[in-house]
Write a protein that binds this DNA or RNA. Sequence first.
DNA 1: ATAACAAACTAACAAGTGTTAGTTAAAAAT
DNA 2: ATTTTTAACTAACACTTGTTAGTTTGTTAT
Lengths: 189, 189
Amino acid sequence: MKITDRKTEIINVAAKLFKEKGYSAVTMRDIAQAMDIKAASLYNHIKSKQEILVLIIIEIAEEFTSVIDEILASDETTIQKIERVIQLHIDITLRNSEALACLNNDWMHLTDDDLIYFIKMREDYEESFRKIIKSGIANGEIKNLNIEVIIFSTLSTLRTLYIWYGKKKTIKPEILKANMIQVLLNGIV
Amino acid sequence: MKITDRKTEIINVAAKLFKEKGYSAVTMRDIAQAMDIKAASLYNHIKSKQEILVLIIIEIAEEFTSVIDEILASDETTIQKIERVIQLHIDITLRNSEALACLNNDWMHLTDDDLIYFIKMREDYEESFRKIIKSGIANGEIKNLNIEVIIFSTLSTLRTLYIWYGKKKTIKPEILKANMIQVLLNGIV
DNA sequence: ATAACAAACTAACAAGTGTTAGTTAAAAAT
DNA sequence: ATTTTTAACTAACACTTGTTAGTTTGTTAT
C-alpha cells in the first residue's frame, strides 16, 4: 500500500484537528471541509477514520521505541543517555507536535491489535528509560531517589512539551535543550 | 441538599468515564448504563451533558486558583511556597483524579462563558506561579534559568500526576511528596 | 484516439447522538 | 388521607455520525 501525497495531506490535516478537539470530536466532514473537499472523497485515499488515527500514532511511537533502544544499547554515560532522550523528545516535538498531541490524548481510541501494539511500545519505552535510570543509580551518576518518581517527573515533562511549545515558539531549540537538561538533571534550586 | 445526592453521583460516574474515553466519546447512554438507569432519567437531575462537564471542571479549577492565590500572598520563602504548590497538586490528585483528568483533557469542550472563565483561571494560575518563581530568582533562592522552562517543567509534572498515580498507588503520599520535592527542586543528578 | 486511472462529486443509509414529552410508581409532606 | 415531589420509565424527535454506491471529470499511458 503506497502512501500518496494526498494521503499524507489528509493525515496532517486530521492530526491538526485531532490536536485541537480530540479524535472523537472531529468528524470526517470536519477533515474534508479543512481540505475543501467532501467527506466521501476522503475514502479515495484512506480506508477509515480509524486508519488515520493508526497512521498518525504508530509511526511516531515506533520512532520513539527504536531510538530509545539504540540509546539504551550505546556505551555512553547515563547523563549522556538522558541528554539524548531529552534531545529525542525535543526533535519530535519540533517536527510533529500535532502527531505527538494525538499520541498523548487519543491513543485509547486505537482498537484491537493496534491498541495492544501501542501499549506494548509505551511499556517498552518506559522500561528502557527505567533501565537507563537504574544503571545510573547503580554507578552513582543519579541520586538514589524513588525511581518511579524520577521516571514520571522526567517523562511527563518531555511528553507534554508540545502543549507548551505551541505557545512559546520564540525560544531557540538549543536554548530550550540546554535549559531542559539543567532543570531536569540539576533542579532549579 | 442531601449528603448522597443523585446529581453528585452522576457527576462522579461521568468523570470516571470521561477520564477513560474523553468527553466526546462518552454518551449519555454510557453514563446512564453505568448507573443502571436509562439515559432520559439523567435529565431529572442535570440540565445537559455540558452541565456535567462544567460542574466537574470549574469547581476544581476554582480550588487551584484560590489556593495558589493564598500561597502567593503568604510571607513564606519561595521554597516553602513551591512545596505548598506541590502539596496542593498531590492533595487534589489523591482526592479527585478523575476530575483532574477531565480538566486536563476536556477543558476545550467547555463553551462560551465557561470556556472564557476557565482559560482566565488557567492563565491566572500560571501567572501566580510565575510570580513565585520570579521572586525566588530575584532573591537567589532559585537558579537563574529560563523561567518559562522552569514553569513548564514543574507544572507539567504536577498536572499529569493523575496519569501516573492511577498505576502506582502503592507509594505513600508523604513519600511521594518528599521525593517530588527532591526531584523538582534539586534534580536527579 | 482510446483505455485506464485518480480523485473529486451527489445521494443515501443505518446506526447513534443529545434531548424532550408524557407517564408511572413510590416516598415525603401536608 | 390526600397532595406533592422525586426519580424512574417508554417512546420518539431531529440531527449527526462513519461509510458505501454509483457517477463524473480531468490526466496519463498505450
